[in-house]
Design a binder for these strands. Structure first.
Lengths: 128, 128
DNA sequence: TTGACTCAAGTACGCCTGTACGTGTAGCCT
DNA sequence: AGGCTACACGTACAGGCGTACTTGAGTCAA
């Protein structure tokens, strides 16, 4: 499949909001930005247009207004992004990143518990 | 501290090599590239120059040759990069990324074991 | 129906990035 | 000494990115 062009920082911000909203007009996305993130209406508009050209969203006309919806699931984008990052930062190795995340960024106790379960599940499932 | 400009994909590639080599000339870095990654000598040169301007490396002259060394530790760069990524992709939450890594990318058995130990250690240490 | 207002779409623009070319000079061969 | 080679440095340039201004068209009030 012809690799979609990767999302840039700003495009990603908008994409996340679009995923949350499921579908939205420029205005709605713009309003969905957190209050402390000032960004021009037309900037958001540009991002949405670019998401469309890159194949991450489609728009349908409702009156004279474009209503955008995502065409790629977050999971997919996330996978692609992380793959890329792991390649670039750790030469493709997953563990250093996991280690970094767990050691250097705070993980709450309940998350540790969840993690433990996750590992249990994997250890069982994997060797079959 | 005046936030260093973030490293781009290509700059990161070079930075990683420089970390490995500890210090190196353009040529050495160029040669350190894997065989299947064709890249022009002068491109590497440009990246190293940019690393210098961005404050990630210094160069000292040895004869008429510049010998570059990193000035920022990998750990630091990694932290900054991940922070950024986690913010952009998961709104600052660490766990979704960890989950993604463990579930969607293969983790080897011995790594799972290590992970388990890591968690044990944290659970003990953290609540003190 | 004309002005004032609102908003979508197009256009703009400077900086960054990936990539490399051209030019000049230090050293080596003859 | 005159040329050839190897290489460092500066320069270049097209495309992407972040951000927004401008223009034109629909809408409502007087």
């Amino acid at each position: 499949m012809a690799r979609r062009a990767a999302l840039s920082k700003g495009e990603m911000e908008v994409a996340r909001l679009l995923w949350q909203l499921k579908q939205a007009t420029v205005r709605q996305v713009h309003e969905a930005f957190p209050a402390d993130r000032t960004i021009d209406f037309t900037t958001v508009q540009t991002y949405l247009r670019r998401l469309e050209t890159k194949g991450y969203a489609t728009a349908r006309l409702q009156g004279r207004t474009r209503v955008y919806s995502p065409t790629v699931r977050p999971r997919t984008v996330i996978r692609e992004t992380i793959d890329d990052l792991v390649d670039r930062l750790f030469g493709g190795e997953t563990m250093p990143l996991v280690r970094h995340l767990i050691e250097d960024r705070g993980i709450r106790d309940e998350d540790l518990a969840e993690l433990r379960e996750l590992i249990d599940r994997l250890e069982k499932g994997e060797r079959s």
